[in-house]
């Protein structure tokens, strides 16, 4: 029954002390949050830690949730803070794990896989704030208005950020494409081995 409740209602109960409702929210958001962090950091173990941290913070700061406001926006705000704190603690290290890259596909799909791997690489080449805006707007199904609230700016500013991040992504992608060694072999993935 609890599964049909809206996020906001669940969080309202968590706020009032019914901790087990957080389990439902965890089921709903562990995967999106995990993927948000994986795309942002390229590191699976770190992403798992960060997801734990987010839910820990939700419990700890549950009183700061304002009933009636979007739970998702609030949660991603916490998620961003968790990432910022984590970066402050350790030196930034961007390394793409092989497991996050697409696996080698049968020959007919190899071309597409190549492109995806290249795109992933290009995404990881961007500064994290640009990558973040793309991940938030493209993968987390957040509206510009919601992202604006999170970043503390106007929706129009978010649109400009998205546009510029996309432009940088395009340039990174084109640069990678130009430097890609010519390939006869349809199978295999240049980026599997790192």
């Amino acid at each position: 029954m609890t599964n049909t409740l809206a996020d906001e209602e669940l969080m309202f109960h968590v706020r009032n002390g019914t901790g087990e409702m957080l389990g439902v929210l965890f089921s709903r958001y562990q995967s999106p949050l995990f993927n948000f962090y994986c795309k942002l950091t390229g590191n699976r173990a770190l992403s798992e830690d960060l997801v734990q941290d987010v839910f820990f913070r939700i419990l700890k700061y549950r009183q700061t949730y304002k009933p009636g406001t979007s739970f998702k926006t609030w949660m991603y705000q916490i998620a961003r803070n968790a990432r910022v704190d984590n970066m402050r603690k350790q030196r930034p290290q961007v390394e793409i794990e092989d497991s996050l890259l697409p696996v080698v596909m049968p020959a007919d799909r190899a071309q597409q896989t190549q492109e995806t791997a290249l795109l992933h690489k290009a995404l990881m080449m961007l500064p994290e704030e640009k990558r973040e805006i793309l991940v938030l707007s493209r993968f987390q199904e957040l509206k510009y208005e919601e992202i604006a609230k999170m970043l503390g700016c106007q929706p129009n500013a978010v649109k400009v950020k998205v546009f510029r991040a996309l432009k940088d992504l395009r340039e990174a992608y084109q640069q990678l494409e130009a430097s890609r060694p010519p390939r006869d072999n349809a199978r295999g993935n240049d980026y599997d081995v790192q």
Partner: peptide, 18 residues
């Protein structure tokens, strides 16, 4: 590229996370 971004694969969190 924006359209292609969705082809980036989703990753499954490990059961230990739960």
């Amino acid at each position: 590229l924006w359209s292609k971004l969705v082809t980036l694969p989703d990753v499954e969190p490990s059961p230990s996370m739960r």
